[in-house]
Amino acid sequence: MNTESPGHRNHTLVVTVENKSGVLARVASLFARRAFNIRSLAVAPTEDEHLSRITIVVDGESAPIEQVVNQLDKLINVVDIQDLQPGHAIERELMLVTVAVEPEHRDDIVEQLDRAGGKVMSVGADSMMLSLVGDPEHIDTFENLLRPFGILEIQRTGRVALANLDETIE
C-alpha cells in the first residue's frame, strides 16, 4: 500500500459537483473512458443541498494528475476540484470487519481494538464484528493485525478527506 513513489503517488481529489442525478455516472464514465484508475471513491451530500462532494483517490501512475483534473473540470456539473497534498489534509476511512474468535481470545482482540481506537459492534458465539475509523494506513495496520485470527467478512468505505485548517490537532 505504501509503495507510492514521489512521481507517481496516489492523489486524493475532492471534487465538488452539482447534486443532480447522473453526475456520479458522468465522473465514473470519464475515468473509464480516459483509462484513469480509481483506487477509492466516496460520495455524499455537503453543507449545501445543491452540491455533493466526491472524494476520489486516483492512481497517479495511470495518468498525469493534471490531465485527470483538467478532464474532470470539463464536466459541466463539476464545480470545484481540490488536489489534496499529503500531510496537508485529514483523510479517513471506516472499516467494518467480522473476525473469527473463540470466547477465550476475545479479550486479546478487545485490547488491540482499544489501543487502535475501535469499537465492538456485535458479538457472536465464535465471532465478533468490529468497527474502526482512521487514516488508511492505520486501517491497513489493524487489518493486518486481525488476519491471524481469521477475517470472515470485511467492508471498507472509500476515503473521505478535507484540507487542513490553520492548525491541525492530530
Binding site: 442525478s21 447522473g22 455516472a25 458522468r26 464514465s29 470519464l30 473512458r33 470539463k74 459541466i76
Partner: peptide, 14 residues
C-alpha cells in the same frame, strides 16, 4: 439516450 451519449457530447440534459 443521456447515458449513451454522455461521453460523446460536451454535455447533455434529461
Amino acid at each position: 439516450t443521456t447515458g449513451i451519449t454522455a461521453s460523446i457530447t460536451k454535455h447533455n440534459f434529461l
